[in-house]
Design a protein around this nucleic acid. Sequence first.
DNA 1: CAAATAGTGTCAAAGAGTGTCAGAAAGTGT
DNA 2: ACACTTTCTGACACTCTTTGACACTATTTG
Lengths: 147, 147
Amino acid sequence: MFFGQYEHNIDAKGRLTIPASFREQAPEGIYLTEGFDSNLIAYPKQHFEQIANNLSELSITDPETRALRRLIFSNAAMLTYDTAGRILIPAFLRATGQINDTCMIIGIGDSFEIWSVELWSLEAQSHNDPQKNSNRWAAINISARGN
Amino acid sequence: MFFGQYEHNIDAKGRLTIPASFREQAPEGIYLTEGFDSNLIAYPKQHFEQIANNLSELSITDPETRALRRLIFSNAAMLTYDTAGRILIPAFLRATGQINDTCMIIGIGDSFEIWSVELWSLEAQSHNDPQKNSNRWAAINISARGN
DNA sequence: CAAATAGTGTCAAAGAGTGTCAGAAAGTGT
DNA sequence: ACACTTTCTGACACTCTTTGACACTATTTG
């Protein structure tokens, strides 16, 4: 499981050090793709392939499905670590994530996200709305009973 | 069950000794997350993993689901004890809990909390205010009998 | 083919994290 | 009250991780 948050620097060539604890959990490298909120999502190899399978089973006749497939596949990259534990983020992904020299790496369970510092601080602020949060927690509490 | 309160010191590296009696009840380590009152909540492994599993089953295409996952996982850490029974509290959690060199460890039944000394003393004072207390919990139904 | 650009490997220094140990303090039993 | 055990703490030494710098290779472009 991916937990916690890290602030890491990106070097002049666009390389980003992945936290050592994250590398252990995705030793073969990661698939990096565009997220839904101007961020990037990193999946361990196996996990992405599961999602890819699920997507491929959806009907090709539905326009929204086709758009979702394009979003995910066309913006995806399979990345491995160099000898120092870094990945090279392709330029087009750096652009979509508005990522320059510093970024946040955010664990979200079975995957992790990469955010620009600015956008993440906005996102984190939005997590502080007590009313919204109680609704969110309510949703999870219901499903926590489920079994 | 976690009971009682302890005042423990945090060393220069951010390590905190967990009371031996608490360690016995969470021998595999704890999950530490942000609480609702500028404090930290520690769950034994099993309890938190139940929540994490349920979260992972929700679809990432729902914005509220994404927010909830970020809220919970990004502020969480899986921590194990070193050979002296200490955990290393990540810097971002020390910041949210306003914890520096001394903190309170508070048992609250199936989990325990970590507070800065200052915030805890405010919280504790509010428990001792007779005026507040007379009606404060009137709506909460507790009896020694089962439900 | 040469030049510019993009990508990769290596290294050392700073900083963060971890292990160990001994003494102080607290708790326990006789 | 005393001896004994356990627990917590601070100090120190050590390891691991991240980062920036530099050198080198590969690729693209004119």
